[in-house]
Design a binder for these strands. Structure first.
Lengths: 196, 196
DNA sequence: ATACTATACGGAGGCGCCCTCCGTTTTTCA
DNA sequence: TGAAAAACGGAGGGCGCCTCCGTATAGTAT
């Protein structure tokens, strides 16, 4: 259940008007794009412009700058968790696992472009970080267990282990894009069942 | 050798003029004070005012806001390391150790008031953090070894161990002042040589 | 002691950014 | 279809970073 899917106003419980809902979605996408292009310091004006709305509209949906950051982050986490669930219906469990881990690396890379701002959001809302970590860990576990049950992945690691390995790798300050990709390939090879 | 003690202009190598030197020191102290009072988001104007100088003077010494943050941090680290060296001449090795650890806790508390800004400084200047950690670790070790040689401290831990214990404790987001003090007392008791 | 120069000071003001306010527009519903 | 409710847009207030340049002062040569 994501923030928008509720589609209800803060206090009334009434559904959002269609234009408001459309603009909300546009704004979150615009913000993600602008943060990726210009970094976490991008201006509110730039985000509104990218979304094709006025700043007033932006501030109607997100009263403070930090609220935009939080919304983008929540949406990223939702997408990542959602991707795991899609993967559960995919034909090949191993491909699903590989695909999800690639998605995780992309997610982590995007996060790094506005890490400072995110840090503030975590400070303001202490539950946000652990709750997200928990959801992501569980998603990872679902995909991994399915691959393990199909005999496609070694079964002496669990989702927590895997996140413990991949997450810090992605966060390292000096990780290049190529390096991340190569390390992921190595991790994937290590994840296959040992041939003996 | 601290930044000011060189007392020389960036390129000329000539010594700083007396008023410039005086204002530099005032500005660093003022910035530390203002960050402590108002948090890391304090304005440049507030810092200049606290130092009793114009903003122009502030910017002459520190071209960018981040340079002020870095200067305060460097000064804090210098003071902390300097305190260790003073402790080496103190009468009682245990008191020196205890005093230094208290100074470390105070240093860490001060750091937390402008952690976000400091994080940026570390990003901009990747050597700063490891170099400082190294200096502080070495200082800790000097004080600790002296206490150990005097038989005042248990000798199955080293300076690195101690920092590894105290540093994360201080950084924890929800540490209260009292809690920090109580935990330090406990650590100090644990540091005494085991009675057997 | 004095005059001269290099250096430093101060603060008004430019610019950009966050956010508010309110007149205008759009959606919703009877 | 018409009126009320909801949302939109963007000008502008206020603040914060930083620049610029006229003024003041420390250092130096005579």
């Amino acid at each position: 259940m994501t923030a928008v899917e509720e589609s209800s106003s803060e206090h009334t419980g009434r559904p959002m008007r269609a234009d408001a809902r459309r603009n909300y979605l546009r704004l979150v996408d615009a913000a993600r794009q602008v943060f990726a292009d210009q970094g976490g310091g991008a201006s509110m004006e730039a985000i509104a412009k990218q979304a094709g709305v006025g700043v007033g509209t932006l501030y109607r949906h997100f009263p403070k700058r930090i609220d935009v950051v939080e919304a983008v982050y929540r949406d990223d986490v939702d997408a990542l968790v959602g991707r795991a669930d899609e993967g559960m219906e995919a034909a090949d469990p191993w491909d699903a696992l590989e695909g999800w881990l690639r998605a995780y690396v992309a997610y982590a890379r995007a996060k790094r472009t506005f890490l400072n701002e995110l840090h503030e959001a975590f400070e303001k809302n202490p539950d946000l970080k652990p709750a997200s970590r928990e959801r992501i860990g569980a998603a990872c576990n679902r995909v991994l267990v399915r691959a393990q049950e199909a005999g496609a992945a070694r079964d002496d690691v669990d989702g927590e282990d895997l996140m413990q390995l991949v997450s810090p790798m992605c966060m390292a300050a000096n990780l290049t894009e190529d390096q991340g990709d190569r390390l992921l390939l190595m991790i994937l090879d290590g994840l296959r069942p040992p041939t003996r």
